[in-house]
């Protein structure tokens, strides 16, 4: 079986139609030959981005999301998580904040190394599952 050519306009058009029909917001395919990203806008028009191969040293933003519903705490009282100065380099195991449910504080880890560039939720705000909390720029 031959590999699908994701740079073929006909393939991209087919995938775009399929995504639009299924109401799927977007798709990203990574292959050894490169990367294809299709984003279907609310008006039904697709934005297509493709690069034949990721450029070494390029930067891509990644969101850190709430793992459950609760109150968002930027930093623990002990000061173990500092986000006062942004941007800030972090490693994957760093705790960026907490979700508080009653007396329990659930740490929110960065998950990957990079640079925290944005704080996306307000301190002490109630956030739902999956709410974006931080943006990290990851070096590829």
């Amino acid at each position: 079986m031959s590999a699908i050519d994701f740079s073929d306009p006909a393939t991209i058009a087919f995938l775009t139609d399929a995504l639009t029909a299924a109401g799927v917001a977007g798709l990203e395919i990574s292959a050894p030959s490169g990367q294809l990203r299709i984003v279907v806008s609310s008006a039904g028009e697709a934005k297509i981005g493709s690069n034949r191969s990721a450029q070494p040293g390029s930067v891509s933003p990644v969101l850190v999301r709430a793992p459950l519903a609760g109150y968002f705490c930027v930093a623990h009282r002990s000061g173990s998580a500092e986000v006062s100065s942004l941007p800030r380099a972090i490693c994957a195991t760093d705790v960026l904040g907490f979700i508080r449910v009653g007396p329990v504080l659930l740490p929110v880890s960065a998950g990957r190394s990079g640079t925290v560039t944005k704080l996306l939720a307000e301190a002490d705000a109630m956030v739902g599952y999956g709410a974006p909390l931080f943006e990290i720029e990851v070096q590829s």
């Binding site: 519903a69 109630m126 739902g128 599952y129 999956g130």
Partner: peptide
Amino acid sequence: DSFLCIGPSSAAKS
């Protein structure tokens, strides 16, 4: 009055 996401799309998890 309030709107909260409680989990992933799968009904079992939400």
